[in-house]
Amino acid sequence: MSAIIEAKNLNLGYNDELVIKDATFSINAKEFVFITGASGSGKSTILSSFFGHLDVKSGHLNVFGVSMQRASKNRINHLRRSIGIVFQDYKLIKEWNIERNVMLPMVINGYKKEVCKSQVEKLLVHIKLSHKANKFPLELSGGEQQRVAMARALAHNPTIILADE
């Protein structure tokens, strides 16, 4: 099996503080992986590095064969098209209705409007929120917001899903 994410002696952190030190691992296609640890142990930090939101301090990190240390902004943007992300705080756009929030990654990836509408309808039925398509995030419960965030992560048929708690 080929690795879709590979790290060797990976160091990550903020400013001068390392949060992840000398991590070496690989994640293969079709694996279901949990990263566990205490609060503040670096779970969100490591996920952020997988989609280029956090730079590698030292060591090596390859995601889908892309060296995250050497990748251009364009290459990272292209890489993100293969990744679905459920953020810890969901990052729903409060001024947009649920339908539009779920549609966001498809619009970014250039899907046609009809495809976007059809995919969003299917996902909202699947998460049992089709009756709230025109509601706004702050009109939903926390659990409903989380389901919207999951639907958004799945909307563009990514190769990998990163879910932060």
Rank of each mutant, 00 (worst) to 15 (best):
R75F: 00
N77M: 08
M150H: 13
H131G: 12
K117G: 04
V115N: 14
H78N: 03
V102C: 08
L104C: 04
S118V: 03
I76N: 01
V148M: 13
C116V: 14
G142H: 12
I85H: 00
V63G: 00
K112A: 09
K94E: 13
N101V: 09
R147W: 15
Y111V: 06
R75S: 01
N77C: 03
A71K: 00
P105Q: 06
E121I: 07
Q119F: 09
S118K: 14
F64Q: 00
N134H: 15
N74D: 05
S118Q: 14
F136N: 07
R70H: 03
S67Y: 04
G65V: 01
H131L: 13
E99Y: 11
M106P: 04
I98V: 14
N97K: 08
F136D: 02
E139F: 11
Q146F: 15
V107N: 03
I108Y: 08
K73S: 08
N77V: 03
K112Y: 05
F136H: 05
E121F: 08
Q69H: 03
P158T: 07
L140H: 10
V120E: 07
N77F: 01
I93S: 03
N101T: 09
L104N: 06
F64Y: 05
C116P: 04
S72R: 07
H126K: 14
V63L: 00
I93C: 12
V120M: 07
L138P: 02
E99V: 02
R147A: 14
H156E: 10
I98W: 07
Q145Y: 15
M103S: 11
V148W: 10
K94F: 06
Q146M: 14
K132V: 08
R100V: 04
V66P: 00
L140Q: 09
K117H: 13
V120I: 13
D89I: 05
V120G: 06
K128W: 11
N62C: 01
V66S: 00
K122I: 07
G143L: 10
S118P: 05
M68L: 03
V115G: 07
V107S: 13
S67N: 06
